[in-house]
Simulated assay, not measured.
Amino acid sequence: MTTNAPRPDVLRYTAFSTDPDGGNLAGVVLDAGDLDDADMLAIAAELGYSESAFLTAPPEGLDGRAYTIRFFSPKAEVSFCGHATVATAVALAERTGPGELVFATRAGTVPVEVAEEGGVLRATLTSVEPHVEEVADADLAEALGALGWPVADLDPAFPPRIAFAGARHLVLAAATRARLADLAYDFAGLEALMHRLDLTTVQLVWRESSTVFHVRDPFPVGGVVEDPATGAAAAAFGAYARELGLVPEDAVLTLYQGEDLGRPGELTVTLRAGDPRVRVSGAGARIG
Score class of each variant (00 low, 15 high):
E266W: 05
G189I: 12
F71R: 00
V135F: 04
A42W: 01
A175S: 11
A104M: 09
L125E: 13
A192F: 11
P58D: 09
V112R: 05
S73F: 01
D21S: 15
R12P: 00
G166L: 10
R279N: 04
D182P: 07
V28S: 04
R272I: 12
D217T: 14
E266G: 00
R7Q: 13
V151A: 15
Q257V: 02
A239K: 01
E116H: 01
E51M: 02
A66Q: 03
L183M: 02
D37N: 12
S17W: 03
E100R: 15
V269E: 08
G145W: 04
L55M: 08
A152W: 02
A175E: 07
R7K: 14
T18E: 15
E94T: 01
T176G: 05
T2D: 14
G23Y: 10
H214K: 11
L253C: 11
A91Y: 09
R272C: 02
G108E: 01
A5I: 10
T18N: 09
T230H: 10
I162R: 04
P276V: 07
T85A: 00
V247M: 12
A104D: 15
T124E: 11
A239E: 05
R7T: 13
R279K: 12
A173R: 03
V78K: 06
A141Y: 01
G231H: 05
H195D: 14
A115V: 14
T124C: 09
F54V: 06
F219Y: 12
R277D: 07
A15V: 07
R106G: 06
A93R: 09
R70L: 04
D39M: 00
G238S: 10
A57F: 03
L121A: 02
G265S: 06
V120Q: 07
G282Y: 04
R168K: 14
R242P: 02
T211L: 14
G118C: 09
E226A: 12
D137F: 08
P98I: 00
T200N: 13
R12D: 02
A283I: 00
G61L: 04
I69S: 07
V215G: 03
A174R: 10
F213H: 00
A184N: 14
L246T: 09
T230W: 00
Y13M: 15
V86L: 13
L255S: 06
V86T: 15
R207Y: 07
V215I: 13
F80E: 13
G258Q: 08
G61R: 00
D153M: 13
A285R: 10
H195L: 15
R106F: 03
R161G: 12
E113D: 11
E46P: 01
A32F: 02
V102I: 15
D21K: 15
A283M: 00
A57E: 13
F103V: 04
E60N: 04
K75R: 13
P248G: 02
A178W: 03
L183G: 08
T96L: 11
F237P: 06
A76C: 13
G33N: 11
